[in-house]
Design a protein around this nucleic acid. Structure first.
Length: 841
DNA sequence: ATCGATAAGATCGAC
DNA sequence: TCTTATCGAT
């Protein structure tokens, strides 16, 4: 009798659990419910994989293995069965009292490890889980990047590898400095072995878990032997400084887990469920890490899309996702092919392009969002026209009620942002640029961070070298080098040598200055001990004399001082967030692991510009991809090797699939790049799209394009030789000053704590800032134009000052107005965008 | 030490 | 074209 009640209950339990995830499509639901064992989710672009991840984690925590499982905590009563039955029928949540019977071997939030590609994605995941299960539970889930997860493991257990608990994390800049020293020491000629190639080769070694000794064994030619030698010296230095670079974080964690059973067991028990997002972009080392972590329970779920693997150049191996089923026998594979993002012309264009790649798992995305608009292909004459066309479309879209933030401009290289940026700034279109120099990469910020770092870790000779004479303290390079030698000889940190300067004959002359530095250092240490973190940093600026130095530097110093003000703010924000947990080490760590995309704020209303790479994971109603040209995209370097070309194609696929409703692909007949004007053929990727999905605009016909208007080579005559280069410029050089001024003037927009709330690493239009709030209004073209201009007319521009109109040319729904400004010379502006109005003379 | 001239170099870039 | 690094001169 009770047997039937139990069976009945279990059957209903399955139905109930399924009903909790009823908003998913069947494939998604299957992925959410398959909790145990290895699982590969092949999630196409826009297929709702984050939703799947969130729900799957919710299921793991809420119900555990209960679905499809015969086990139950105890026999339910008839009354409980009725209760469940009524919940299922009415679609209500079961009462808490019933929950113990509803779950089986469910995990606690901290038993779940979810690894994402960026900090932002991790944060988002936590928030969404929090919304489903309650904020406390969300907070307790381990959601982080590979690197932050490794840092946590290494801080706790890294001493087994001979690193101090408070090891420093070296960024690329720090790495470069170490390399420079090693090049000098080993007398290596940069011409023979460029530092960049040595650095990246060593980075690749670490990605593949190759030790310095291993590199030695592998080395065939002289160059590789040299790299192995550098590798060895480099690791030596890092170890002495108690430092790890980004690659070491992964490499060392793998070593730690592989070689120390008790540590491994601890984490295998802790992380009962491991989930990895963006699996197509993982390295060999990351794969090994994942395998070590999950081999206790075997509960590993990876989500990825082989078609979106775009980081091969950085050590990612697409093999990880392609061979998942071999690596984890018995793996389930689930494909998510329904796309919820884009309309079908866009999606079909993406499918058309990607199907030209060999070596893919193969899937075809579909959508039920309808055909939507065709993909626009615009052929411009120059990169300026490219920008103008974009501005026109944005203008039209705004009129139709779209927001500035609905628009994204994507390009292959950061260098391509310039002309568009200039034009937008001039036309008064508020924009933001992601990428370029990060806030935390600025010299003054790094200097102050270095001061903080040596207080946290007095062994950090590299950071010490950086700031010992900044501001100038009469401690020259020769003195520093001598100190470095002494430190190496005695096996002590440089700071100790410095402290006992008078005991060394070679340092006698500088002893006074060195003593002075020690006084400063001691004072810092004391302040750090006595005061809260944010006050410490504020005082640090004065104790070190840094503030005074900048004050004496005029305008540029002022900007830098403002940046440091931001730094102090960010320390404060960090303190507020962490409360009693706040620590110097903690802050430095957080800063070291912050990226640009982390600070992208989707709510700020401005057009976003970024590289195709940084656009991964984002979506916009209207997307522009510029520079669709051979030699640009695909890039010159990747045109010939099959593998490189396929990666470019995947990048194109990523770009296309960012668009929800409208996509505009733009190529230009001429393009100035690196000071040369190039005449490129339209990108082959354009030719791969079925014309059925394309709508061509621009003066395609006139310029020798073939029937399709693209794709067939030779149809386009290249002036200036067949290489596609021409020494002569293309007449685009007029009215084009003020470029660099624009850029600098517009780089001061750091709201709030860079890494947390948005701002860091984002460069914005000065106009956008100054209008903040009323921007959209200002930038929205009104019917027929808000102001009428005619040649001879005097105008007043918000930032460019007074000027006289030279010419007015209608374009689209707007006019290009050429103005000679009193202060800055001749400029072109868009009548409806520019913050400009006619004035009486 | 700090400036200015000169040369080299320049994808993509998470952490 | 533009930036950045390095070197030599003041």
């Amino acid at each position: 009798m009770s047997q039937t009640i139990t069976q009945e209950f279990i059957k209903l339990r399955d139905r109930y659990i399924e009903s909790q995830f009823s908003r998913m499509n069947p494939m998604q639901r299957k992925a959410v419910l398959s909790v145990d064992g290895p699982l590969l989710i092949l999630a196409g672009a826009g297929s709702g994989k984050t939703t799947v991840l969130v729900n799957r984690i919710a299921n793991i925590i809420g119900f555990g293995s209960a679905w499809g499982c015969e086990e139950i905590y105890r026999e339910p009563t008839q009354e409980e069965l009725d209760q469940l039955h009524s919940c299922v029928v009415k679609g209500e949540k079961v009462p808490e009292s019933l929950m113990p019977l509803m779950r089986w071997k469910n995990a606690r939030p901290w038993n779940v490890l979810a690894i994402t590609f960026t900090n932002k994605a991790a944060q988002e995941l936590k928030e969404r889980i929090g919304k489903m299960l309650g904020p406390d539970l969300g907070e307790d889930v381990n959601a982080s990047t590979f690197h932050s997860a490794c840092v946590r493991i290494l801080r706790r257990d890294g001493e087994a590898l001979g690193y101090p608990r408070s090891f420093t994390i070296y960024d690329t800049d720090d790495q470069k400095r170490v390399f420079k020293e090693i090049y000098k020491e080993l007398e290596i000629d940069e011409k023979f072995l460029p530092m960049k190639s040595a650095m990246s080769q060593i980075s690749r070694y670490k990605d593949q878990m190759v030790s310095p000794e291993g590199a030695e064994d592998l080395a065939g030619d002289i160059r590789n032997r040299q790299v192995a030698r550098i590798y060895k010296h480099y690791q030596d230095r890092l170890r002495k400084a108690g430092a790890m670079d980004f690659d070491d974080l992964i490499y060392n964690t793998v070593r730690l887990l592989a070689d120390h059973e008790e540590v491994r067991q601890h984490y295998q028990e802790k992380f009962k469920y491991v989930l990895v997002d963006e699996y197509q972009d993982t390295s060999v080392a990351q794969f090994q890490l994942v395998r070590l972590l999950c081999s206790g329970t075997g509960n590993i779920c990876v989500v990825g899309d082989d078609d979106q693997s775009i980081y091969r150049f950085r050590g990612a191996t697409i093999e990880n996702i392609l061979s998942f089923e071999q690596q984890f026998p018995g793996a389930q594979v689930i494909r998510l092919e329904q796309n919820y993002r884009s309309t079908s012309h866009i999606l079909d264009a993406a499918n058309d392009v990607i199907q030209n790649n060999a070596g893919r798992k193969g899937k075809t995305l579909w959508t039920d969002l309808g055909q939507g608009e065709k993909v626009e292909y615009y052929q411009a004459d120059s990169e300026q026209m490219e920008a103008i066309h974009i501005a026109e479309i944005i203008g039209k879209n705004l009129k139709m009620g779209m927001k500035l933030r609905d628009h994204a401009v994507l390009y292959r290289m950061n260098a391509q942002s310039g002309p568009i940026e200039t034009y937008f700034a001039r036309a008064g279109i508020p924009y933001r640029i992601l990428g370029g120099q990060r806030f935390y990469d600025r010299k003054e910020v790094k200097d102050i961070l270095s001061y903080m770092a040596i207080v946290a870790n007095p062994q950090d000779d590299l950071r010490l070298r950086r700031i010992i004479n900044e501001p100038a303290r009469k401690i020259g390079a020769a003195t520093v080098d001598r100190m470095g030698d002494l430190a190496v000889q005695q096996g002590i940190p440089m700071l100790e040598v410095c402290r006992h300067a008078q005991e060394y004959a070679t340092l006698s002359r500088a002893a006074g200055a060195l003593n002075g530095f020690i006084k400063i250092y001691d004072q810092l240490e004391e302040t750090a001990e006595e005061k809260p973190l944010d006050e410490f940093v504020r005082d640090l600026l004065d104790i070190t004399g840094y503030r005074q130095m900048l004050k004496a530097q005029g305008e540029e110093g002022q900007t830098r001082l403002e940046n440091l003000g931001q730094l102090v703010n960010s320390v404060k924000t960090y303190c507020d967030q962490q409360g009693a947990q706040a620590s110097l080490e903690g802050f430095l760590e957080e800063v070291a692991l912050i990226s640009d995309i982390d600070s992208y704020d989707e709510n700020a209303d401005s057009v976003v510009m970024m590289t195709l790479h940084s656009a991964k994971g984002l979506e916009f109603p209207q997307v522009f991809i510029v520079g669709m040209e051979e030699g640009v995209f695909p890039g010159e370097m990747s045109r010939y090797a099959q593998e490189d070309l396929e990666e470019e194609r995947r990048l194109c696929y990523v770009g296309i699939t960012r668009a929800k409703k409208k996509l505009c692909l733009i190529s230009s007949r001429s393009r100035m790049l690196f000071g040369r004007t190039q005449y490129n053929q339209p990108s082959r990727f354009l030719g791969e799209i079925d014309p059925e999905h394309l709508e061509m605009t621009g003066n395609v016909a006139g310029q020798g394009a073939n029937q399709n208007g693209y794709g067939s080579y030779g149809g386009y005559h290249v002036p200036g030789g067949r290489s596609g280069y021409s020494g002569t410029s293309y007449g685009q050089s007029t009215g084009y000053g003020g470029y660099s001024a624009q850029r600098t003037a517009s780089s001061t927009s750091y709201g709030g704590y860079g890494g947390y709330t948005g701002g860091g690493g984002i460069r914005s239009s000065g106009y956008g800032q100054s209008f903040a709030g009323s921007t959209v209004k200002e930038a929205t073209p009104t019917q027929g134009g808000k102001h009428q201009y005619k040649p001879g007319q005097w105008v007043e521009h918000k930032t460019l000052g007074r000027g006289q109109v030279l010419s007015v040319k209608p374009t689209g729904g707007d006019c290009i107005v050429e103005v000679r400004f009193d202060r800055v010379g001749v400029k072109k502006t868009m009548a409806n965008y520019a913050p400009m109005k006619p004035v009486e003379e």
